[in-house]
Design a protein around this nucleic acid. Structure first.
Lengths: 202, 202
DNA sequence: TACTTTATATGACAAATGTCATTTTAATTT
DNA sequence: AAATTAAAATGACATTTGTCATATAAAGTA
């Protein structure tokens, strides 16, 4: 009998998954959480065989929880279950050595199947996810540019950004100019839209 | 026996809900869709007692489907099941005379309970949703201002907006100035952030 | 050491943006 | 019709933004 813990902040999915997995006669759900902190605490104390973690949760993300858990419990099987195929998320997941990374955009059968496979020692990355990552436009912005973009995403003026980042007003303008040229745009808002569409910012 | 149709584009939730509701011995799921168009077509042909509709779906939103269905089938019970508590969504739902409006942020029990209640003739609006709507800051922007905001949200320049909306460059600047003053900001991006936070734009 | 990058800064300029006071025009109301 | 209100436009102005060419200093490399 395989014991499973579910952390998912969308109640409807959380309870639905619990019910479904409980139907399988070789699985038991031994706990649920709707935030990362509780999940981390309870997985440690309840010691399930498998932890299914959503990424976007209050207090602590599923990826952070995964990272912590992997340090403590080498043998725990971790499944990341999330909505979007973000490159940065996927990378963190790989670093945390999760056993599976599934998208909510696949049916529950797939989840059940995945659980069986990882119990068998396999590592599963959703094919859909992998292809999205491979075909995604890679971020041409330097870390500095990224940082500055995050600043003006909040609506800050050039001067406010300069103060925040300890650069001169002119330098900030240069960086922004470079951002615009790399994104093929002519204004901050356009650049933000491009970045948004390509998931360059979190 | 009550027949139910589910339209939900997140496969995981779709299949999970189907499985759960099928467990109840007075319900049968007679169909599923992951986009609005198929949902509309199939609900018309399959004639379920209840249609559960997500709002954000490809091709046609759940609200549009609800509107169409209500015109054709007065006796059909419609449940809107969605993630966010948006005022505009809720208003459209009321106009389409849906029988229930639930948030995915409530457990499946609640859904089952709601189905029973609407079969009993009641109309259910998620309490959580209603309170969110009531406490939400109401949009101070005029329809014109809203329209212009949607334009610059796409990154358009003043002139481009003027051309799109058939106003003079100066008038557009005046409207934007008014938007900034109403939102208590001094730049388009800041204004967008405020609008975003308060769900004034869709 | 000399050469080359890389990050930061300056200055100068045109264009766009945001602010206001005022005017014109159109639509509503009395 | 006259008065009021609302919508759109103008003009004038200070700032901000975006673009470029160029300079300087620091860091890395041959």
């Amino acid at each position: 009998m395989t014991s499973i813990y579910i952390a998912e902040d969308q109640e409807m999915l959380n309870s639905a998954l619990s019910a479904i997995l409980n139907l399988e006669d070789d699985f038991t759900i031994i706990g649920n959480a709707t935030d990362g902190q509780t999940a981390l605490r309870e997985v440690i104390s309840l010691k399930p065989d498998i932890a299914i973690l959503d990424i976007e949760m209050p207090k602590m993300s599923g990826l952070e929880v995964a990272g912590e858990l992997r340090l403590i419990k080498q043998d725990l099987k971790i499944i990341i279950l999330t909505t979007f195929a973000r490159k940065t998320y996927f990378e963190s997941a790989v670093i945390a050595q999760v056993n599976a990374y599934l998208l909510k955009d696949s049916p529950t059968d797939k989840l059940v199947e995945t659980i069986h496979k990882i119990l068998d020692g396999q590592t599963i990355y959703d094919a859909n996810l992998v292809s999205t990552i491979l075909t995604s436009v890679k971020n041409p912005l330097t870390p500095q540019e990224l940082k500055i973009m995050r600043e003006f995403a909040q609506g800050k003026s050039t001067q406010e950004i300069a103060d925040a980042v300890f650069l001169s007003n002119g330098t900030v303008r240069n960086y922004i100019s470079s951002i615009l040229s790399k994104t093929g745009t002519h204004s901050r808002i356009e650049a933000l839209n491009v970045a948004q569409k390509n998931n360059w910012i979190d």
